[in-house]
Design a binder for these strands. Structure first.
Length: 572
RNA sequence: CGAGGUGUAGCGCAGUUUGGCUAGCGCGUACGGUUCGGGACCGUAAGGUCGUGGGUUCAAAUCCCACCAUCUCGACCA
């Protein structure tokens, strides 16, 4: 590829607005062009990376017996009514009517379509396990796209669906894909990634894992035990909480005036936040009359994902404006508000000497002893894990890190096959709903994640396996007859063996060298009047900055070796 | 959905507070010339409904109103 003909330009000035370094480089190096909020076009270099990532995924899916299919982006309402998700999924699913006034939607995931595709083609247990996958566009009308390709509305995703006749077989297959995912991420050049237990969310089902790239720009929090194998998304993470102990005293009303927040009350009464009982109120989505009140220790926070599982419905933070609650003074003693579901977090269990609101303006109550004053309550774990709390497996302190979700795998059970009436015949002749699992990887997010993890202060640094070009061929002084003739000849020769981006522009060296760096091409070959005097070229390795002078007739061999070495590392 | 920021040439920006006549700068682009192993220099040229609509005014990029787009933060502690 001649860079003079390459669509897109390298920008000298940093694009404004974004604070994610890899996204900045992707824009400046001519990989991406934004169309609107959360929607991007991929320029030729990005599409080359995208295709390589897709091919690695494809190879690994084929290795575990996956069969590639292509399901539609647009689906009819009826298909999603059967599974119930037409109504349970919110605004992130785009719905519209076709010209015949028929309700349609844009696919944001394809469990329904996968069951539809397989339900008449798989008839017997004998045909299982069975996996279909596709690499296709998804549309999710995200509330807030961010960080370039990390969170977008439209993206290309590999999604796979497997079918099974019993739990054991499902588990075995799930494990195979789990290992396949590890290979995929390693092959595309990701380094610091882990698999964690995760929430099943809108997918349903029981067991699920997320593959997380650990990075500060990540939007998920991951709880990790540095001492054992425990790793979990904050949404499902649990911990052993070391309970604080306070003197057991009698209930006493104390005047707290305008002190409303935990901080203010603590400051006034000269206590720590872990001696307070905090009230948090939620509304149940689609139910205006009821309120959920959570009592939780003052130093803890409510984990909404856990709360949703306890309540069994979607919840949202409640505005207390038109309720009977005394804002800032809500407490668990003598709280009598109708239509209220009260949940006590396990962080309160067994505590005494606590401070809570008095349910009247200007007062709190001290000396609350949970087992004495509220003897018959049930506790639920609805709190977030705090850093330093103890691992539920080994009891040692936990750490919390940020991560990007780069892939997920779910054991779905029969949620979809049951609701959509898919059955198979078992050996004894009975009809059962097969078990199902699904597996996703976003190609664009993978691209951006690798870019983020690998880039340095000069620009992108692509792993050899997914680089748009292996070699940036960079002759300096294209006005020099000898350089130009040699360059053309060498380009023809190298192009036979390698993926080459040929910088054929007659411009100053600085621009060419800088472009090669910001674009992140792993190997740069420079020739110039100076190097040609000795019949040599200079190879620079982008990752390490290492420079190698090499005779022109040995260039091809050396490049081949450098490429093979890195590819071997990536493929394990 | 809430809060804040931004919107002027392909890209990055100044000008807006205090309205003024042909709207500027840098980069990039085209042509000519000198340079050239780390974003060189000189000259010439092209390129703009100042986000959109409405209003105030003799006069609006600038003041007022509405809307749109986009970025960042938040969607969580009572």
């Amino acid at each position: 590829m001649r860079i003079s003909k390459l669509v897109g330009e390298r920008l000298k000035d940093s694009a404004s607005g974004t604070n994610v370094k890899s996204h900045n480089f992707l824009l400046r190096a001519g990989y991406l062009k934004q169309v609107c909020n959360g929607i991007y076009s991929l320029m030729p270099p990005a599409q080359l990376v995208n295709l390589k990532i897709q091919n690695i995924i494809r190879e690994e899916m084929n290795k575990v017996g996956g069969q590639e299919v292509l399901m539609p982006v647009v689906m009819p309402k009826e298909m999603w009514e059967k599974s119930g998700r037409y109504y349970s999924i919110g605004q992130e699913m785009v719905r519209f009517k076709d010209r015949n006034d028929h309700d349609m939607l844009l696919g944001m995931t394809h469990e329904e379509a996968a069951v539809h595709l397989c339900s008449n083609t798989i008839k017997s247990y004998d045909q299982l396990p069975y996996m279909i996958y596709q690499i296709q566009t998804k549309f999710r009308d995200e509330a807030r796209p961010r960080a370039g390709l990390i969170r977008v509305k439209e993206f290309t995703m590999k999604d796979a669906y497997s079918f099974h006749y019993d739990k054991e077989e499902l588990k075995d297959y799930y494990q195979k894909v789990y290992e396949s995912y590890n290979r995929i991420f390693k092959r595309i050049g990701m380094k610091n990634f882990i698999a964690v237990k995760s929430d099943t969310g809108m997918m349903g089902g029981e067991v699920a894992h997320e593959f997380m790239l650990l990075t500060d720009i990540g939007e998920d929090s991951i709880v990790i035990c540095p001492h054992c194998d425990y790793k979990a998304n904050m949404e499902v993470a649990t911990s052993i909480d070391q309970k604080p102990t306070f003197d057991d005293t009698q209930l006493q009303e104390v005047f707290t005036g305008d002190a409303k927040t935990i901080d203010e009350v603590c400051h006034l009464l000269k206590i720590q936040s872990n001696q307070t009982i905090k009230a948090v109120c939620y509304a149940i989505v689609g139910d205006d009359t009821n309120t959920v009140v959570i009592f939780i220790r003052g130093d803890k926070e409510v984990n909404e994902a856990k709360l949703k599982r306890v309540v069994g419905k979607e919840v949202a933070v409640k505005d207390l404006a038109e309720t009977g609650f005394v804002k800032g003074n809500i407490g668990c003693i003598n709280l009598n508000i109708p239509n209220t579901k009260i949940i006590y977090d396990t962080s309160l269990k067994g505590l005494c000497g606590m401070v809570t609101g008095a349910n009247k303006e200007g007062y709190h109550i001290s000396g609350v002893n949970l087992s004495r004053d509220l003897p018959n309550i049930e506790y639920f774990d609805v709190s977030k894990v705090n850093e330093g709390e103890c691992c539920p497996i080994c009891g040692k302190p936990l750490t919390i890190k940020k991560g990007i979700e780069i892939g997920n795998i779910f054991q779905l059970g029969t949620k979809y096959t049951k609701s959509m009436d898919m059955t198979i015949t078992m050996p004894d002749g009975s009809l059962v709903n097969p078990l199902m699992a699904c597996y996703g990887i976003g190609a664009g997010r993978a691209l951006a994640s690798v870019a983020e993890e690998s880039c340095d202060d000069k620009g992108l640094v692509w792993p050899m396996s997914i680089t748009p070009w292996q070699v940036y061929f960079c002759p300096l002084r294209m006005d020099d007859e000898n350089v130009k003739a040699t360059a053309e000849k060498l380009n023809d020769q190298l192009t036979q063996k390698f993926e080459v981006l040929y910088d054929d522009r007659n411009i100053s060296a600085g621009i060419k060298l800088t472009d090669s760096e910001i674009m992140g091409i792993p190997l740069r070959v420079v020739i110039s009047p100076r190097s040609l005097q000795n019949g040599q070229a200079e190879i620079t390795i982008r990752k390490s900055g290492e420079k190698i002078m090499i005779e022109l007739d040995k260039l091809e061999e050396k490049l081949k070796l450098l490429i093979a070495t890195e590819m071997e590392e990536l493929n394990g």
